[in-house]
Design a protein around this nucleic acid. Structure first.
Lengths: 111, 111
DNA sequence: CTATTATGCCTCGACGTTCTAGGCAAGTCT
DNA sequence: AGACTTGCCTAGAACGTCGAGGCATAATAG
């Protein structure tokens, strides 16, 4: 019954999360949501209305490629795979994230 | 020489930073920028075009109060002070920030 | 058998925040 | 005189996220 403490997303973090999720292996959109939820220990919940536009954006930028296929139960689904550029981008975004987290930490301990 | 590594802000973090800066004592707008820069070890640089609208917003919400005064050299400036509600809000935003940082950390170490 | 839930894709418009680029005034420094 | 710093502000654009919808198929519950 203990209510899960959801974390609110900040604008600009979603791409990193999606790239991270897909970096563990090809995945369809709906699965990205589930994988992010699972990887984050149920703390992150992505809305479909956020995901699909984001996936489109990310594909346009060449960070993932998409192709139609079937899931294990035979249903059609669009599978996304991380490209080399996507892997680079993920590294860039993680680094940028780390810098911000560090900067905020400094703010916190400042007198 | 060694270029400072600036951290890019994410949408939604600015209020927390401003509240944090003002929590160390009343401050005028321009000073908020300087204090944030200093507190973050030169990592965070707030644009005036982001700051003033944010201050207005924050004042409207009752998290700070503003009043005109003079700085130490006798120049007019608008001084902002944290309200009780502002202190509460700061706590809320810090907690929310921590949750997101934790969630992202979990994502990172997930296999 | 029928209704509901879960899986899977998508679009649209509203919303809020930040940034770029300006403008203005007064003081300091060369 | 000119440039730079301090100090305030605004307007418009850009961007990403969310809420609310729509559609189709499959699985589960009643």
């Amino acid at each position: 019954m203990t209510e899960q403490q959801k974390a609110a997303l900040l604008q600009g973090t979603l791409d990193m999360l999606i790239l991270k999720a897909v970096s563990l292996g090809p995945l369809h959109g709906y699965g990205v949501i589930q994988r992010i939820r699972q990887m984050s220990g149920e703390m992150l919940d992505i809305e479909q209305g956020s995901l699909y536009p984001a996936l489109y954006r990310i594909e346009q930028r060449g960070w993932v490629t998409a192709e139609w296929g079937e899931n294990e139960t035979g249903r059609r689904a669009k599978f996304y795979s991380l490209t080399r550029a996507g892997r680079r981008q993920l590294a860039v975004e993680e680094e940028s994230w780390d810098r911000l987290v560090l900067a905020v930490a400094k703010m916190r301990q400042a007198t």
